[in-house]
């Protein structure tokens, strides 16, 4: 199987969907002539032209709302946020209009748009550029959100998102763009709402998503090799819809849960997972549920501090050992 980068995987998904459906178009800042701020859409403007790959002014509110309007008549816009952090200037369009048009119309209007772009910290760019708002999105019924942790999922989830009839946010990660994974040449889809067990284990369940799942995978290997602890690692992939059953099944088996995410803890995704576990698997728990999240403060700029602020292997292992006590 060929190994390709996360970036290339997304580009393949976008290109395949553009070729499959004439209503799919891409819109965003620098996506066309500049080839994308992070080069995700590199070469696509050359290949598909002005009609399909559209450069916008720095007007996120306008082009987000425009995408919603266009989707009402069957267009399937994929809008790129150069950083997901910039979606905040389009908050009303995305969090009122995209999420509630279906509901407010009693189901008469659909909003089949995709909002994609990097949503991560760890790159030393400060608080305003390091948001991980998958929890905010998930807090809005009507919106869907996925956080691919690797190239295979990125491609499969992106294709599913584009074909989805509701608004789907795809949270990418600038630190993953250049990393490679095996991705089959044949077409495939990764359905929304299906978690992935990255590693099987018996002593504890680690639940994670996005790049954190990859960090947790390293930590789980170290736990096994150095500490003789067998951790099962679940990568959520999709935050909403959420694969509750896979989480519960694992916790019923291991009796312990460690939740790891890059989000800030208050009302983070893991707050919901934690509730789910205690509510539906209470009798199976041998210990309280533990969490590793970003240290609760705006993202700090200084690199050594930021590297400590977001979950790293060291912090995950420390928590895992505490959980086993």
């Amino acid at each position: 199987m060929p190994r390709i980068t996360y970036r290339e995987a997304i580009k393949q998904a976008l290109s395949e969907e553009i070729e499959r459906d004439e209503n799919v178009c891409i819109m965003g800042e620098e996506v066309a002539q500049y080839n994308g701020a992070y080069k995700v859409t590199e070469g696509m403007w050359d290949k598909y032209g002005d009609k399909r790959i559209i450069d916008t002014p720095i007007s996120e509110a306008a082009f987000s709302g425009l995408a919603i309007g266009a989707s009402a008549l069957g267009i399937r816009p994929v809008i790129e946020m150069m950083f997901m952090s910039f979606s905040y200037v389009a908050f009303d369009q995305l969090f009122n209009n995209a999420s509630f048009c279906r509901y407010m119309s009693g189901g008469l209007m659909n909003v089949p748009i995709v909002v994609r772009g990097p949503a991560n910290g760890g790159t030393n760019v400060g608080a305003t550029h390091s948001h991980t708002p998958e929890n905010l999105v998930a807090n809005h019924p009507g919106l869907k959100v996925v956080c691919p942790s690797n190239a295979y999922d990125a491609k499969g989830l992106m294709k599913a998102a584009i074909r989805d009839n509701d608004p789907v946010f795809v949270m990418e990660n600038t630190l993953l763009y250049g990393q490679e994974w095996e991705v089959p040449e044949e077409e495939y889809i990764v359905e929304l709402g299906v978690a992935n067990i990255l590693k099987e284990g018996t002593d504890m369940t680690i639940v994670s998503h996005g790049r954190c799942a990859m960090i947790a995978l390293e930590a789980a290997k170290t736990l096994e090799e150095t500490h003789g602890i067998s951790a099962e690692l679940i990568d959520l992939r999709s935050i909403r819809p959420l694969d509750e059953e896979t989480i519960l099944e694992s916790v019923r088996k291991t009796g312990r849960a460690l939740l790891v995410e890059e989000n800030k803890p208050y009302c983070g995704v893991d707050a919901q997972i934690s509730h789910l576990i205690q509510y539906k698997a209470f009798d199976y728990l041998d210990a309280p549920i533990h969490r590793v999240s970003a240290i609760d403060a705006p993202q700090v700029y200084a690199k050594p501090l930021e590297d400590w602020q977001i979950p790293n292997e060291e912090r995950i292992i420390e928590r895992a050992l505490a959980l086993m006590e």
Partner: peptide, 21 residues
């Protein structure tokens, strides 16, 4: 060291930043 290049501030000099968005 919390703001970086994009977020310099000096209210004592009537300079209110440095804004990234």
């Amino acid at each position: 060291g919390k703001g970086g290049s994009m977020h310099f501030f000096a209210p004592d000099k009537n300079f209110w930043g440095g804004h990234g968005i």
